[in-house]
C-alpha cells in the first residue's frame, strides 16, 4: 500500500503526486479511447472512430511529458528505495498506456474499414471481449492509484481469461471464413480488433507487474502464491 508519511521537502511530495496525477490522466484518456473505439465498432459510428483516432497524439504528448518529469525528478531529487521504484514504474506504466492508446487507435481504424463491410454475427463476441479488456484496464488503473500488490496479482492472473477468449474467437473466425469466403474481409478486420484487445490486456498485466515491483521490490512472477502455477510448463511457456 502507498505509505502515508510525507517527505521533509514538500516539493518532492508534490513532484511525486503530480507524476501519479499525470499517469492517472493518461490512463483515463486511453481508457476512454478504448471505450470509444469499441463503441464506434459496435454502433458502426465512423464519426466517433475518427474522433478516437485524433486523440492518440494527445496520449503521446502526455507520455513524453511524464518521461520529462521522471528525468527531472531523478536529476533533482536523488530518489532511492521505494521512491525510485515508483518513478521507474511511472515511465514503464506510461509507455504501456501510450501503447494502449495506439492499439485503441488501431481498433478505431479497423472499425472504419468494418463499416464498409456487411455486419457479421461474430462482432458480438469481439465486443464482449472488449468489455472484459476494459474491466482489466480499469482494474489495473485502480490498482495503480492504490499501489496495491494484492490487487495487482488479481488482475495479472485474470489476463489468462482474456487470452482464452481471444483463442476461441480466433478459432471461430477461422471457421466462419472457411464456411463463407465472402466474410473474409470483415473477419480479417475482426481478427485485428480481437488481437488489439488481447494486446491491451497484456499491457494491463505489464502495468500490474510494475505496480507490484514498486510496492514489493520484487518481481510479480516470484510471488509465492504463483509458485504452483509457475511449475506448470504450459503456463511458463506463455509468459
Amino acid at each position: 500500500m502507498r505509505d502515508q508519511s510525507t517527505h521533509i521537502v514538500s516539493g518532492y511530495d508534490n513532484d511525486l503526486k503530480s507524476l501519479t496525477h499525470a499517469l492517472t490522466e493518461l490512463g483515463t484518456l486511453v481508457s476512454e479511447m478504448v471505450d470509444g473505439a469499441m463503441r464506434a465498432f459496435k454502433k458502426r459510428d465512423s464519426v466517433l472512430a475518427e474522433k478516437i483516432i485524433a486523440r492518440d497524439s494527445d496520449a503521446n504528448k502526455r507520455q513524453h511529458k511524464i518521461d520529462e518529469d521522471v528525468q527531472r525528478i531523478i536529476a533533482l531529487r536523488n530518489p532511492v528505495a521505494q521512491d525510485l521504484r515508483r518513478i521507474i514504474g511511472a515511465t514503464r506504466i506510461a509507455a504501456d498506456l501510450e501503447r494502449v492508446g495506439d492499439l485503441a487507435e488501431g481498433i478505431a481504424k479497423r472499425a472504419l474499414l468494418l463499416n464498409e463491410e456487411p455486419r457479421i454475427d461474430m462482432s458480438k463476441s469481439v465486443y464482449r471481449m472488449g468489455k472484459q479488456v476494459r474491466k482489466q484496464l480499469s482494474g489495473a488503473l485502480d490498482t495503480l492509484l492504490k499501489e496495491d500488490a494484492i490487487s495487482a496479482l488479481h488482475y495479472w492472473q485474470a489476463d489468462s481469461d482474456i487470452d482464452d477468449l481471444y483463442n476461441s474467437i480466433f478459432r471461430e473466425l477461422v471457421t466462419v471464413m472457411m464456411g463463407d469466403p465472402r466474410t473474409i474481409p470483415a473477419c480479417a478486420e475482426l481478427l485485428f480488433v480481437a488481437k488489439n484487445l488481447e494486446r491491451i490486456g497484456d499491457h494491463a498485466t505489464n502495468i500490474c507487474e510494475a505496480i507490484y515491483f514498486t510496492a514489493k521490490a520484487d518481481q510479480l512472477i516470484n510471488d509465492p502464491s504463483l509458485a504452483p502455477m509457475m511449475q506448470d510448463p504450459g503456463v511458463r511457456k506463455t509468459l
Binding site: 508519511s5 521533509i8 532511492v80 525510485l84
Partner: peptide, 18 residues
C-alpha cells in the same frame, strides 16, 4: 538503498519524516 527492511530506514533514506 533499494529495499531496506525497516520502515525507519526507508523514511530516513528517502527523506521522510518518521
Amino acid at each position: 538503498f533499494t529495499n531496506p527492511d525497516n520502515q525507519r530506514t526507508q523514511d530516513y533514506i528517502t527523506g521522510r519524516t518518521g
